[in-house]
Design a binder for these strands. Sequence first.
DNA 1: GTGTCTATATCGTTG
DNA 2: CAACGATGTAGACAC
Lengths: 253, 253
Amino acid sequence: MRKAEVRMEPTPKELAELFDLARKLEGMLIIFARCRVHYEGRAKSELGEGDRIIMIKPDGSFLIHQKKKREPVNWQPPGSKVRLELRNVPTIVSVRRKPREILEVELLETYMVSAFFAEDYEALKLSGSEAEMAALIFSNPDVIEPGFKPLFREKPVRHGIVDVLGVDKEGNLVVLELKRRKADLHAVSQLKRYVEALREENPGKIVRGILVAPSITAGAQRLLEKEGLEFRRMEPPKRKEKRKSRQKTLDFL
Amino acid sequence: MRKAEVRMEPTPKELAELFDLARKLEGMLIIFARCRVHYEGRAKSELGEGDRIIMIKPDGSFLIHQKKKREPVNWQPPGSKVRLELRNVPTIVSVRRKPREILEVELLETYMVSAFFAEDYEALKLSGSEAEMAALIFSNPDVIEPGFKPLFREKPVRHGIVDVLGVDKEGNLVVLELKRRKADLHAVSQLKRYVEALREENPGKIVRGILVAPSITAGAQRLLEKEGLEFRRMEPPKRKEKRKSRQKTLDFL
DNA sequence: GTGTCTATATCGTTG
DNA sequence: CAACGATGTAGACAC
């Protein structure tokens, strides 16, 4: 069996065969087609006739791409059930259970169908995330301020979950809200919500709130100052490596 | 010229030819390959060897899909500049200018490359958005409450932009925050931020805040009540049609 | 361009 | 499963 199978201008029968083969062997499908698309679920949409690329993955993910934009024009997430119906016009139907969503693609003309029996055991190793900012703060708390002691990570409070909760050198409670990119109004609102919750839960205690991010928008800065909150500049650290991938062992050598 | 061109197990030269053809004629490219991926920009990532599908669009969009999930494992947004470099290993390089981001894909083995010269003049017609909730409220304000009068849509206030600003039958200011899906803590924080801004800007005035959504999480409900804000249940309306697509005219008939 | 917000957001994690 | 928050969020729109 080859890794890739292709049929140009397939008949409905050829289309169905490759569709079934991909299903059985857990291959990915790519279809070039002129099609119409109907979606109904959380919202509802219609897409008139045009040429698009359809991608169907063995986990049920379903993507329809036009020739612009990073985002698919229509899609179905993993877990959806897909089938090919040979109506007057061959139609791909994908159903998601919860919430119930249906995607139908009428294949008016299929230029190419291909199946790819991909083998892939690697996972992305990403660096520069908010989680790595937190790790840095715990390993080197002085990046926040001298004497800062982080105590909890992802600490649930009354109205949400605080990124980092600690104490300053005076013993005051300190809430950190971390953002890996420029902090906006939303980030300030979030921090304010946590600070207010902690003040309620700790009457009489001083509770400081610090927004930690590489930069901040003008509007967020205004709101931050009005609320008596603080800002500490910090870049998300980019490591050389991060272990997350499955190791490839060569036992048999 | 056919709509689709395919090369199985292409040589680097064949790969380059189809790559250039797609570029020149604004076609979409699909490549099945065993590859490694390196990304550096806002963050940094590495992806070890494995089989993936690569999609390159004429607008510069660049997607690398593994066989699971709706999201590409790596990507580049529209506007990026892509080129094929015939090094020891053929390598696709995509560069984004602002922010500066580089994506490199080493093609260790190319199983298939295909170009699709897609023609598509249709745009998605979507219904059930937040914008349509707002339209419904303006055309039929009683869905909020008897006597409600919406005055502004997307009204900038001190710390953000209010979805709908109006007055109730008593003449009090009313801020609506619309959500097309279940409202969460973020939605309540947002509403609270607007209400507080409007109370500051209108001293002495009563300002009500109403969260309008199909449902609300338990935590959001708690915070909403504590803050003296209100909830009004409303489903995003799904229309039969919505005009957004380019009309196909048949002048010559 | 920056700032603000929506999204059929998707995704991971936790209770 | 619901809830909560991150995301290299992307995309749209106003200023």
